[in-house]
């Protein structure tokens, strides 16, 4: 395991040359700042709300790797006062879907900080997030000697056709995609890395009913008190050293956890799916996107009679999707 971790770090080190710095404001990062790390490609329309959401939450600085955007994302980000930006033209897939790039940036800039690694369509919800800033959470995690915080990916979708309500820049995506599956998640343990493997939700239900083992993983560990020796293995699903994956209790208790609300299924989705299919830069030969494409042709509605409408984090905690643990 140690060797594997070193290998991922060495790989991140090699891949660093693929990135060219556009704006580097990392000097402005202060001692207890919370940092976001993210890769993106052509996501201009999502960026204003993404930045606002996390700034309001208390995130202090953003590190982005732009994978060859052509829609002005790069220029937009370069103009933001709290953003450091790199650009990479090389294959997303060859860089293990951006993990190598981010591992390098984290190695350089994150040690000693709480680092939140999310995509621009993932929005963190944690216990008390309506009244307590992210710093309250990280201070509490520090005081409790907890180094990593889990947040399951929760796929959100609109009622009716995905394309019906167009998304506009700056808008809260969950005004449109306000529904989710509350209780159809399947969990098993990954013996190798010690993390849980969670599948289910609307994607398993609609796109993979006959092929459930291919349904995408929903377990995520996005928030980590970074150390130079850490490395994400595949996306933020698992991380090394293995102890960081133990975000769950095995003796009946509940640890504190959150959710990453996933605003993937918006009007922007169809365009994205066909583009990704052409680029062939996604996991396992993009089988996920192939499945979407097949369904998208008949304009899918992910909503069903038993879908749950999002209200707030307390609802998610009551439904058992996340937990306050012993934070009160």
């Amino acid at each position: 395991m140690r060797i594997q971790r070193k290998r991922w770090l060495a790989r991140a080190f090699r891949k660093r040359r693929e990135m060219i710095s556009v704006v580097d404001r990392s000097k402005e990062v202060k001692r207890n700042d919370i940092l976001i790390f993210s890769t993106l490609r052509n996501e201009l329309i999502r960026l204003p709300y993404f930045l606002k959401y996390y700034r309001d939450m208390g995130v202090d600085h953003f590190f982005f790797v732009d994978n060859d955007s052509t829609d002005g994302s790069r220029e937009f980000l370069a103009g933001q006062p709290d953003v450091s930006l790199w650009t990479a033209e090389a294959g997303y897939k060859r860089a293990r879907f951006g993990v190598d790039w981010l591992n390098w940036l984290q190695f350089r800039h994150a040690p000693g900080h709480w680092a939140l690694t999310v995509d621009v369509d993932e929005f963190l919800v944690y216990p008390f997030c309506d009244t307590r800033s992210l710093h309250a959470l990280t201070d509490w995690l520090d005081a409790s000697s907890i180094r990593s915080f889990g947040a399951m990916l929760l796929d959100m979708y609109p009622k009716g056709s995905i394309n019906k309500q167009p998304y506009t820049a700056g808008q809260d995506p969950f005004e449109i995609a306000s529904w989710f599956d509350s209780g159809n998640y399947m969990i098993s343990k990954n013996r190798l890395y010690g993390n849980l493997w969670i599948q289910g939700g609307p994607r398993a239900r609609r796109f993979f009913p006959d092929n459930p083992e291919r349904a995408p993983a929903l377990n995520k560990i996005p928030l980590v008190k970074w150390d130079r020796s850490y490395a994400y293995v595949s996306s933020t699903h698992s991380i090394l050293p293995r102890g960081l994956n133990l975000i769950y209790d095995e003796w009946g208790g509940e640890k504190a956890s959150g959710c990453l609300m996933h605003a993937k299924f918006l009007s922007t989705f169809a365009g994205k799916a066909s583009e990704e299919l052409l680029r062939k830069q996604h996991y396992a030969n993009s089988h996920e996107y192939k499945a979407y494409q097949a369904q998208l042709e008949d304009d899918p509605d992910l909503w069903c009679k038993w879908s749950e409408k999002y209200i707030n984090w307390r609802q998610l905690e009551i439904l058992g999707l996340m937990s306050k643990g012993n934070w009160a």
């Binding site: 769950y248 009946g252 208790g253 509940e254 956890s257």
Partner: peptide, 14 residues
């Protein structure tokens, strides 16, 4: 909640 948890619940942190 931290020590006993909610019976019958299987989730990301339990």
């Amino acid at each position: 909640r931290r020590t006993k948890g909610r019976p019958g619940l299987f989730m990301q942190s339990r």
